[in-house]
Structure formats: structure tokens, C-alpha cells
Computed example of a mutant assay.
Amino acid sequence: MSALKLTQIGNSVGVIFPKELLARLKVEKGDTLFWTEAANGVTLTPYDPELEEQLQAGREFMHEYRDTFHQLAK
């Protein structure tokens, strides 16, 4: 585990991510990170958790009605 130091950036406070962490997250300058609360703090991810929930709901719907979709595809 490594520590990240908060730093003054203009009128805001920010953190500078080392390039190894950026590579691991597969993000670069200009990308957006999302945070969610977790049991031991917060989780940072480049993936929108709300979008993931919507995609999962769509997958479940398509799985439940797969026979109908199969018939419609004919």
C-alpha cells in the first residue's frame, strides 16, 4: 500500500496519482473517476456504478425473456 498526499491546487485540494496507479486504473488526464462508499472507506473506479446497475438489469431482462427475443429474431 502507498500513501497519497493531498495538495493545494488553486482554490481546491487535490491528489496527484502516480503513473503506475493511473495505468492500473486504465485512466489518463481528462478521464472521470467515480467514487462509492465502501465498508472501509471509499472505492474509486473509472466505471459509472449507476450505468453498471442499468446494464445488469438489462442483462437480467434479456435472460428472462430470451425465448421471446429468439422468436422475434426469426
Rank of each mutant, 00 (worst) to 15 (best):
G30V: 00
A73W: 15
G58Q: 08
K26H: 12
M62Y: 11
V15G: 00
E60F: 05
T43G: 02
Q8W: 09
L51T: 01
M1N: 09
L6E: 07
T45R: 03
M1C: 10
M1L: 11
T43H: 03
T36M: 03
K5C: 00
P18L: 06
V13D: 09
P18D: 06
E64R: 14
Y65W: 12
R59I: 11
I9Y: 01
E64W: 05
A57L: 03
Q71N: 14
E53M: 02
A23M: 12
F69E: 10
S2R: 09
W35F: 13
L22Y: 03
H63R: 09
N11R: 14
D67I: 11
L72T: 10
A38N: 08
M62E: 12
E28V: 12
T32H: 06
F34N: 07
G41Y: 05
L44M: 07
P18N: 07
F34M: 09
L21C: 06
H70R: 15
L33I: 06
Q71M: 14
P49Y: 01
R66Q: 13
Y65G: 10
K5D: 00
W35K: 05
E37V: 05
H63A: 13
E50Y: 07
F69H: 11
N40R: 10
L6K: 11
T7W: 01
V42S: 10
A3F: 14
Y65I: 15
S12N: 14
V27D: 08
P46Y: 06
T45A: 03
L33F: 08
R66D: 14
H63N: 10
R59S: 02
F34S: 06
Y47N: 13
T7Y: 02
F17N: 01
E20W: 07
R24T: 13
Q56W: 11
Y65H: 15
P46L: 08
D31R: 01
R24I: 10
A39C: 01
F34D: 04
F17C: 01
